[in-house]
């Protein structure tokens, strides 16, 4: 019986490895949380575009509050919801740098709704990675503006009721109507095919900023096994069966110039 390989053979070469722009340290994310995948994709895109030394990352308040620990780039911590404003101040002071905000749904769609709206309206040349997992993760699973109707959370124990707390917020749809938006797409991280599509979108969004075209945002439907009360695998399934129907994937606004960049990639 073949002895299982312990070491790669001489003929084997590394074809996939930990991206350089991703720090070596371990993350605090829960097992199976797709924040980790979003981080890895962003780091891979930074590596492939060769822009690590130009990036300035603006971390949110939420599960990704430690994001700046996990990337080998200059980083800072924004107050809850204010990352787009902070990124505006940074980008306008350092136009040569590539400024990225990484935000969750509570940060971006709730307390920070005005900031993201106006950053897009101004066509701010920044890139936003918007991780939508339909709950406030860090604080223990409360309802978020993106929580689904009927979704039970620690602050909507009977399930979200439209009569009480209104309807889920669709940020791609909202921001795509703004002239300042150049590249607004929604992707998902729930399986390998979709993860690869998300990687392309992140790379294109960064190219949009590199070309100084305008505001770019990639919304990533993401899992929260802990607060959804599901295993990591079940949580991926929940994205597919529950989140995607409410938040259809696709390109919501991609200008012609951005389209051209997408093809060039």
């Amino acid at each position: 019986m073949m002895q299982a390989l312990r070491e790669p053979t001489a003929e084997m070469e590394v074809i996939y490895q930990h991206p350089a722009a991703l720090s070596e340290c371990r993350t605090h994310y829960c097992p199976g949380c797709t924040h980790g995948i979003a981080h890895r994709l962003l780091a891979e895109a930074i590596d492939e575009l060769g822009i690590r030394e130009r990036v300035i990352l603006v971390a949110p308040v939420g599960c990704a509050v430690f994001a700046y620990e996990y990337f080998e780039v200059d980083g800072c911590e924004a107050a809850h919801g204010r990352a787009p404003a902070m990124a505006t101040g940074i980008k306008r002071s350092c136009p040569e740098n590539l400024v990225i905000t990484y935000q969750g749904d509570g940060d971006l769609a709730s307390i920070g709704a005005a900031e993201i709206l106006h950053a897009a309206a101004r066509g701010e040349r920044i890139t936003t990675i918007f991780v939508n997992n339909a709950v406030y993760g860090m604080t223990g699973g409360q309802m978020a503006p993106t929580s689904l109707l009927g979704q039970k959370t620690t602050s909507s124990p009977a399930g979200r009721m439209a009569t009480l707390t209104g309807y889920p917020l669709h940020m791609c749809e909202l921001l795509s109507g703004l002239q300042g938006s150049t590249y607004i797409v929604r992707r998902s991280l729930h399986d390998v095919r979709h993860i690869r599509q998300a990687k392309k979108a992140i790379t294109t969004a960064l190219r949009v900023q590199m070309a100084g075209l305008g505001f770019g945002m990639v919304e990533l439907l993401s899992s929260c096994p802990t607060n959804w009360g599901l295993t990591p695998e079940q949580a991926m399934g929940w994205i597919e069966t529950k989140l995607i129907p409410q938040y259809p994937l696709g390109d919501y606004k991609v200008t012609d110039e951005a389209k051209a960049l997408e093809k060039a990639g």
Binding site: T9, I15, P19, G32, H39, A43
Partner: peptide, 16 residues
């Protein structure tokens, strides 16, 4: 496996 790993734990080798 490496594409879906949330913690970038997996290094993949393949025969050239």
């Amino acid at each position: 496996c490496a594409v879906i790993c949330p913690d970038a734990c997996i290094t993949v080798y393949r025969e050239a």
